[in-house]
Amino acid sequence: MSAAPQKTKSGSETLNVVVSAKVPVTDLVTRFEFTRTDGAPFPPFSGGAHTVVTMQDGDRTRMNAYSLMSDPADLGIYAISVRRDDTGRGGSKFMHEHVAAGDEITITYPVNLFSLDLTAKKHIFFAGGIGITPFMSMIGQLDQIGGNWELHYSARSAALGAYADVLREKYPHKVHLYCDDADQHIPLEAILSGQPLGTHTYVCGPEGMISWVHSTAASLGWPEAHVHSEAFLAPEPGQPFEVRLCKSDKTITVGENESLLEAIERAGVDAPFLCRGGSCGMCETDVVTADGTFLHRDYWLEQEEQAAGKKIMPCVSRFLGGVLELDR
């Protein structure tokens, strides 16, 4: 218009927080609780929301998205639960090993790309492993407004099923745990058959589990719009490659263990982002020229768009070959 033009910031607004507690939950999962540095209450959030945590790892700035899993009604703390992944790019390992109670860090305002459909008559949750976290806050929200829900939670063992004990104690008739080591499996077809009209289902877990729920629901005649999934990808390591950023007039090299988005940021170029996991669409970038192979890994671009090679999602996708020029 413009009243007082202000440049849009990449990412979301941020909050300065103190790690108020670091609590081991299972052998692999640790919960981090935050309070605000200024002592103010946190903004309320909706079940399924995530926050992006900024970690200062030496010279390297890491930003990882984690589901907020504290009770949305409690504005005194935010909590996330982090599963240690020893083979990944090191963000979760850094959280486990180097972030301690008392540390001050920065997190973003809540962003929700996996919210409850409040028109639903009933909500069925399928969690696989650490995929339990968004459902913790969804359950908290439904508890507050008296929603109808049930949870089917698959874990390697009872000991590795983070929060299974708490949930089963609080909601013995709504929470069902299935342990691989006891050869228990989610009876998916039986659960999805015969649900009342207006039921919505949500799945968060490994990619195989997500596609299993989608395809089973589809084969049973579920409307696509009633099946929701959260599929955050972590960027995968890959061969280094060179990129020309036309607008910024810079040439950068994307290292083996960083994403294209991280390399762009490292070069001091401001780039939009939200989820950093290939699903929100915010970082979509136009390709000016390319001579090589795109390694598209996002859930945002249509297959035809990926094939056309005119756009790339730098948070998770990579490139192999000679020349890549981006409109950034």
């Binding site: 218009m1 009243a3 910031k9 607004e13 903004p43 305002y109 809540p110 939200l274």
Partner: peptide, 16 residues
Amino acid sequence: LKFLMNIQQGAPGRRL
């Protein structure tokens, strides 16, 4: 629509 669906908490927008 894309713009509006990406409006985030803490970052409201406006237009005339």
